[in-house]
């Protein structure tokens, strides 16, 4: 990763693309605190976050999903999302387990919120299904619902369409629009160019750790450096 600069504005759907090994996930890891940059600055709402830990970044309003879906396999859809709600709840997981007095009101609120997020991603009819029994497309939607339950301002989606069929990808695109319409900004890494070109307001292209292009999808599709990066050949970066 070499001197990469970019900006994400509130309300945008922005995509990060590039060949394998270009550094896309490294950027996501640096935005979410899983890796520290050797050099450079990451600001979220003008506050520097590049040295913060993942949970601190989550509490500031950034949530993410992973390439390999990471769910609590033996819990239900609803309980997976409730865990996301607890991360920003006032009572906390430990007090919830000990059933401290304010817990009932808080639990009711968390239940309602969790149901709301499950409905938002279109899994409302699967509230009590065990996560491990869901097909891949629904697993991804569930991971998104859990991330949303932390009430982020910025949602990072790492290859959300990986392993999905075309119907599942179409449902994912609808869900991404719905989430944006609730006021959440979305930044995604994705290999599925159909999805990227359909949903993104702007696209950043990385190659060998360098930004080689940035702009609206229609311009990116025609960019000579981008075409060469994907088809092979010399890059004029």
């Amino acid at each position: 990763m070499d001197n990469v600069n970019f900006k994400v504005y509130q309300g945008q759907i922005k995509a990060l693309i590039g060949p394998n090994g270009a550094g896309k996930t490294t950027i996501f890891n640096m935005l979410s605190g899983f890796e520290k940059p050797t050099k450079g600055v990451v600001k979220f709402k003008e506050r520097r976050i590049e040295k913060l830990k993942p949970h601190q970044i989550t509490s500031l309003g950034i949530a993410r999903t992973f390439q390999n879906t990471q769910l609590f396999e033996e819990l239900t859809v609803l309980d997976n999302v409730k865990i996301g709600c607890h991360l920003k709840g006032q009572v906390g997981i430990l007090r919830a387990m000990l059933h401290f007095p304010p817990i009932e009101k808080e639990e009711q609120k968390i239940h309602e919120e969790a149901v709301h997020y499950v409905n938002l991603v279109g899994l409302g009819d699967k509230l009590n299904v065990i996560a491990g029994e869901l097909p891949q497309g629904e697993r991804r939607l569930l991971e998104i619902a859990r991330a949303l339950a932390t009430e982020p301002e910025l949602l990072l989606l790492d290859e959300p369409a990986a392993g999905l069929n075309s119907a599942e990808t179409e449902k994912l695109a609808e869900t991404i629009y719905k989430i944006r319409d609730t006021g959440v900004t979305i930044f995604l890494v994705e290999h599925d160019m159909g999805l990227v070109m359909e949903v993104s307001d702007e696209v950043i292209v990385l190659n060998y750790g360098r930004k080689i292009a940035e702009g609206p999808p229609l311009l990116i599709q025609k960019d000579e450096n981008v075409i060469q990066a994907y088809l092979g050949g010399k890059i004029n970066a």
């Binding site: 990763m1 070499d2 001197n3 990469v4 600069n5 970019f6 900006k7 994400v8 504005y9 509130q10 945008q12 550094g23 490294t26 950027i27 640096m30 935005l31 890796e35 940059p37 050797t38 050099k39 450079g40 600055v41 990451v42 600001k43 979220f44 709402k45 003008e46 301002e153 910025l154 900004t185 930044f187 750790g209």
Partner: peptide
């Protein structure tokens, strides 16, 4: 409103990453 700004973001591979990458390539016969 500007939400995220990345400025001169640089990540150098450390020795451990280089070593594990080399081993991985070797075991794959590349």
């Amino acid at each position: 409103m500007l939400l995220v700004e990345a400025i001169n973001l640089t990540k150098e591979f450390d020795g451990l990453v280089r070593w594990t990458t080399s081993i991985s390539k070797f075991t794959k016969g590349r």
